[in-house]
Amino acid sequence: MQRITVAVSGRPTVAWRIAGRRPPVVCVHGAGVSSREFRPFIEVLGRRHDAWTVDLPGFGASAGPGHPLGVRALADALVEWLAAVGLDDVVLLGGSFGCQVAVDAAVRHPGRIAGMVLVGPTVDPAARGFVRQMLRWIRNAPHESVSMAALNLADYRDAGGRRVLGAFTESLRDRIEDKLPHVLMPTLVVRGAQDRMVPQEWAEEVTRLLPAGRLAVVEDSGHMVPYRQAHALAGLVVDFLAHECAAAGAGGRAGPREQRSAR
C-alpha cells in the first residue's frame, strides 16, 4: 500500500492507495475517524481496482485548519484533493458521515465523479438529534468488530475532541435527503443488515430519492460494513463498477440503467 501526500490549501493531505484498474475508487471516512478503518477494505478492493482512501483535513494523518470544517468545506477539500492527485471519473465510496461529504461533492462537482457508493448513509431524518443518534450508536455497538475500537480511539486522538464533536454536529446539521435527488450518477447504497444507525427504511428512502440508486444489504454486519465485511462489500463494488458504472459511462450518466438480469 502506497502512502501519498499532496498539499491541499497549503496543508499536507494524506491518502493510501493500491494501484489497479480504472475507475479509481476513493473511500471517504466517517465523522471523527479516518482512513484507518478503510485500509483493510482497500487491500481487498485493490486486488481488482485502483483503490484509494483519504484522510479529510484535520482527521487521521492530514493536517487541517484550527477550526472544524463543515460538510461543504470538507467536500470542497475532497474535490481539490482529487485535482491535486490527478483523479477524474472517480467512484466515491462514503462510509457513514463520509456519504454526506461525498454526496455534497457529487452534487456540486459532478464533473470528476462517475459513480457513488454510499455505505451506511447518515443521518436518518427520523432520528435527527444528538440523544437519538447516541442511542442508536449504542445499540449498534454490539454488531461491530471489537478490534475496531482501538482504531476509533486512535482516530479520535488524532483529530482532537473539538473536531470530533464538530463533525458529529455537522452530520446532524446537514440534510442529505435534500441533495440525494440531485445525485445524477449511478449510486449503490449499502446497508449492514444489523446497522442500528441506518435502519432499513431509511436506506430504502435514500435509494428511492436517488435518480439512479440501487440498494444492497450485507448480512452479518452493523454500521461499519467496510471493516466488518470487507470481502462482501468489495464484491458488491466490483459488480457495481462492472455493470452500472460501465453502462452509464457508455450510455450517459443520468439515463435509466438497463434491466439487470437476476444473478
Binding site: E204, G213, V217, P256, Q259, A262
Partner: peptide
C-alpha cells in the same frame, strides 16, 4: 432473492430470515 434483485432500485425479501 435473485428474483427480487430484478428490481431497478430496491429488491429484497421482506421480514424473512434467509
Amino acid at each position: 432473492r435473485c428474483t427480487a434483485a430484478r428490481a431497478r432500485k430496491i429488491g429484497l425479501l421482506t421480514g424473512v430470515d434467509a
